[in-house]
Structures are given as C-alpha cells and as structure tokens.
Design a protein around this nucleic acid. Structure first.
Lengths: 343, 343
DNA sequence: TTGTAAGCGTTATCAT
DNA sequence: ATGATAACGCTTACAA
C-alpha cells in the first residue's frame, strides 16, 4: 500500500461493508442497491482509489501488457513502429513494455525470460540480426503463446507476421533508376541473413533481368553495419575503378547517403553521373543534397497492424487468430532529385 | 499458470515438501539441507521454473519496473535517451515501461494513472510541450514517489532533474558564428514555454551582447512545431528582406535545415553568404549539404544519468537521494562546413 | 532442518 | 442485496 494508495479493503472498512460488495459496487454489478453503489463510488473517488493492476494480473493471469522486443530504439524505422504499437495498445487499454536487444541473441533470450516472468500477455518481435537459433520463440509458440513477428521473419513454421513488400519496393526502385537512363546500377545490400535483405536484393536482380541488364556480383556489396562510413568506404574503390557504376540502389538510406558521399568525394556530379535510391525514407533523406529518392516503409502502420493482430490472438484465443499468416504492407517510391538523371 | 509455467507449489508437491522450503532452497537460505537444495534446484531447472514477477510485485509492493513518460518516441534525441535508460535499467534488472504522450497533457495524466495502477517503482519524465499544470506530478512527489525529470524542467520546487547545458551550448554556437565573421545572426527558437527554448535563446542573446552586436527581436522567430517546412516558411521572408541575416542559430537541427533550404531557394551561397548552426546533432546533420554544424547533446548519457538517479531514489529511499538537484550535462559543438564562412 | 499460516489486493463461488 | 471464503504465487514470522 505504497503512497497511501487506498484499497478496496480500506473502502470496505470505512463503510462497514464487505470487500466483495465494494468490488461489485465499483463495477456496477446487478444486485447491489443504488444506495450502496453511490456510497462506495463516492468514497472511492474521495480516496482517489485506483485498482491495483498487479493484484488483478495475479488474480486473472493477465497483465494487460504486451511486450516489444526490438534490436534498437534509436532507429527511425523502429521508433516509428513502436509509435504505431503504442497507439493501438493505448486505444485498447494495454501497456507496452519495451526490451531492446542491441542486436544480441543473448539479450533477446533474457528479454523473453523477463517477459515470461512478468506474465506479459503477448509479444511483438523483431529479432536481432544474428539470431539464427529460434528455439526460444518456438518454445513459446508450442504453448500457444501469442507472438507476432514484424519486419524480420524467423525461420519457423506457422508464425504470424507483418512485413513490408521488400521485393516489390526494391524492384520498383531499381526499375525507376533504369527508366531514368542509368544502366550500371550497383547494390548496397543489408545483413545477409535477414529476409528483408534477401528480398531487396532479389527485387533489384529481377529488375535488372527484366531490363536485360547484366548482374555483376562485384557490384553487389553487403553492408553488415549499415553506417554511412561503412558504405562510403566500401563504395569508394568501386567508383574509382575503370569500369564504374552510374547509380546505386541501397538497402537503406544511410548506406545510400554514404555512397553519395563517396561519389561526391570523387568529383562525380549528382545525380547526373551517379544516381541513388535508398530504402526506408528516413527523416534526413529529403534534407541531404541532392535530396534522396527512397522507398518508403509504412512503419507506423506496421506497428498498428502487428499490435492489432496480437491483440486478436490475446483476446479471442481462437485458432483462427493463431493461424499462420503474413500481412504484407505496400511500400511506396518517393522520387526526389537523387535519381533524376536529367534534372 | 499460463502456458504450463511451473510454480513453487508444483515443485513442492512433486517433492513432498512444503512451498516455504522450496522458496528457501531456491534462494540458498541458510538452514536448508544441501540435499534438499539440490533436489529442488534440479527439479526447478527441469520444469523450467520461472519466479512469477507479478506475485512478487504484489507481495513486496515493488515491481522492479520503471516508467518512462515521453512526448514522442520518433525523435532522435528522445530515442537516444530511452536507449540510455534501457541500458541502466537492464544492468540493474529493472524493466522499462514506456508511455508516449504525443505532447498531450491529457495523455500525460492517463500515463501517470496507468503507472500508479501498475505499481511502477519510479518515473522518468519529459513532459509534453503544453503542460502548464504540474499538479499531477506534485501529488506524487508529496507522497515521496520517486520521479526524475529530464530535458524539460517543471515549474515545481524540489525536483530531481537532468538537463543539458542549453545556455552554454547556445552561447558557444553563437559565439562560433561570430568568430567566423557572421554579424547578423538570426535565431529560430523552440516552443516558448519550454525551459530549454528559453535557455538557448538566452545563450544566443548573451553571445551577441558580449560581441557588442545588436539584438533584433524581428530576427528571433519561435518555431512551435519544429518541422523543417515550418522553419523554411518562416525564414524565407526574412532572408528575402532588404536587410537580411547572414547566419542562423537554430534551436534544433531540423529548423536549421529548413532555414538552409530557404536560403538555397533564394540563391544564397552556403556557407559563405549564410551560415548555420543547429542543436542536437541529429543523425542527418552530417549528411546534408553543406554538413550542418550542431551542438551535440549527450542523450544517451542523459538517459543513463536519469535512470541512475531514479534507481538511487528507489533503492535507498534516503532523503539524500530525494533532495532537489539538477544534474547538468555538457554539450559539445560539432563544427561542420555550414558555419565555416571562409571555407 | 522443515512446516504452518497469514498476507499482498482482487474477484469468483457459494452462502445467507 | 450482501457476506464469507478461497484462490492467484510468493515470502516470512512463528512454530515445531
């Protein structure tokens, strides 16, 4: 009874009635006299009574809290997703508990342990880059524990997922570069074991193939870190070579920006001599010079959708809600100056 | 007992001993035979026993959870702070529950209500822009409830706070512009009722005064929204005027970027004809053209410090920990091309 | 060395 | 229309 918080018992004692009556009066149960209801409610208000959610959780084995496991918070896309999750949770009177894994599998397992100890009702998961063993998720799913994966898909059967259409986003972006007249398009790829990276790479390749352009493996560069320094460093030698690309499709905006910096450093004119399209439409993309074209990901919607699916699983417990499904959200191509060859 | 989670009772039953013995054995209490301890621990492991944190919270009136109330997650600075909070909390086995207020005072009050219902052990608060009534915080403080305010300071006595040195950051930034040879420096200010905005404005004015430069009220423009569109729109007429500023010190990087866009649109050469320094050193600042000089705020450290102070209040409950104090973290000036007049 | 019982705050069940 | 009691899972005096 921290901070003088009043309990049902306090109210009961003061009014000389039983706690069950108080409990029922507070929730307008039938069979309680209007008089008692009024008295109880009045006193509750006066004492600033707040139901103890912890006691409720224990009693009902339900915490009205959902857990979010995410690689890092300081990431435009992820923070946008969190925001979407927050909104839906708030609207349904659920709380959000946040565990950041810093892309570490160990922290991920610890996070799950914490969530279980705290009787969290369900989990929204974007697992870390180098998670290869998914048994900690599998175990939960075997108990019918509600989990929705977002952005990153695990190598597990029968999961409920929300992703964006990475393939088509990448395909669109690359096709756009081709239509603009770029012919030698390199690709800065994401971490190799993530589905999103693979899909974006596939979309890139598909676009080249369809246009009858050659696929050059040496121009497909994985950027495991995803920092602009890394991509600048990796891109520079490629642009300095005899035969060089005239554009880049990057798996994320930061990498694209790094490539642009490399191109500038080598004195190339942007976007005429080197075009670029990124992925995720980060906040900064419109502010760099030239403004970066980018594939926009509906992060907020992803958070909303994932939270909605999870709450369905939690509330209904129907097998329908638990059925494997992958919700695919559409990307959009935001065309800015960086990819307009003849501007 | 969701998901087949084993409880102490299950272990007790299986071993034909009492739950108290199990409880004690699990925590190596003295006076339990090594044999029993071994048996209990073995079975606990086998059953994958996890202590029920909810039951513990109820028993101990302590949830090992701290709450973070923040205007918005999708914000480079705030998300960095959260990251720092997360790290410290994790290291001390505390959980973090996150409530976003979207800069609404009503949501802020609802957030506090939620936190109280859930027996959250303490609060880290950055209140919303238009909160003017702080009684909801005051009420808690009167009960000796642990709260640490960060970034934004409430108009309340005896609070524990963590802020950055906004005044000196702004002073440094403006002085730097002056030293570079800029003479007519405008200021894009933040929301007027926030202390941080006031402090930054003061630092700006102090620098001008010290340099013997005039303060021109018409060149001090509040940007309540803080978007680049807003600042671009507000800056354009000022730069188009007969007598125009030759530099800007902005209360945040986004506003600075907007001003730079306005200057470019009017054909001014950057940084020669128009210099700029922002605040917060957002991720994008190094990537725009010219790269933006900025006052860096130690967001991660702020989160760490705030969490540490809070945990001290929670753990010690000593009046020392609750004593009013304001931890001031130093800013740094990151000089990039946007403020180098003669580069 | 171990067991019993009460209690944290709430509600469901069964009485009255 | 209201009360008594048990239970959620765990800890902790107090007993034995």
């Amino acid at each position: 009874m921290k901070f003088g918080q009043a309990t049902i018992k306090d109210i009961a004692r003061e009014l000389n009635i039983s706690s069950s009556t108080v409990s029922r009066a507070l929730k307008d149960y039938p069979g309680i006299s209007d008089e008692t209801k009024a008295k109880v409610k009045e006193l509750a208000k006066k004492l600033n009574y707040r139901p103890n959610a912890v006691a409720l959780s224990l009693r009902k084995s339900k915490s009205l809290t959902i857990g979010v496991i995410i690689p890092e918070v300081v990431h435009f896309f992820f923070s946008t997703v969190i925001s979407g999750i927050e909104e839906v949770a708030y609207a349904h009177n659920y709380n959000v508990i946040l565990l950041q894994t810093n892309e570490s599998e160990e922290r991920e397992k610890a996070a799950i342990d914490t969530m279980m100890r705290n009787q969290i009702d369900g989990l929204l998961v974007s697992f870390s880059k180098d998670t290869t063993d998914f048994s900690h998720f599998k175990d939960l799913m075997d108990y019918n524990y509600p989990i929705v994966f977002f952005d990153r898909l695990p190598a597990l059967a029968d999961t409920v997922n929300v992703v964006v259409n990475d393939f088509s986003g990448a395909y669109q972006a690359t096709t756009h570069l081709i239509e603009q007249g770029y012919r030698n398009i390199m690709h800065l790829a994401g971490p190799e074991n993530l589905t999103i990276s693979k899909e974006r790479k596939k979309g890139y390749i598909k676009a080249l193939e369809e246009a009858g352009l050659p696929i050059r493996e040496k121009w497909i560069i994985p950027c495991p870190l995803g920092t602009s320094e890394e991509s600048q460093r990796l891109t520079e030698p490629i642009l300095a070579a005899e035969e060089r690309p005239d554009a880049v499709f990057a798996s994320n905006d930061v990498a694209a920006a790094g490539a642009m910096m490399a191109a500038k450093k080598l004195g190339l004119k942007l976007p005429k001599e080197f075009g670029a399209v990124g992925f995720s439409n980060w906040q900064f993309s419109s502010m760099i010079e030239p403004p970066l074209s980018s594939v926009s990901q509906p992060g907020f919607e992803m958070g909303e959708k994932a939270a909605q699916l999870l709450l369905q699983m939690i509330d209904s417990q129907s097998s329908e809600a638990f059925q494997a499904k992958t919700e695919v959200l559409d990307t959009g191509l935001i065309v800015r100056k960086s990819s307009l060859k003849n501007s």
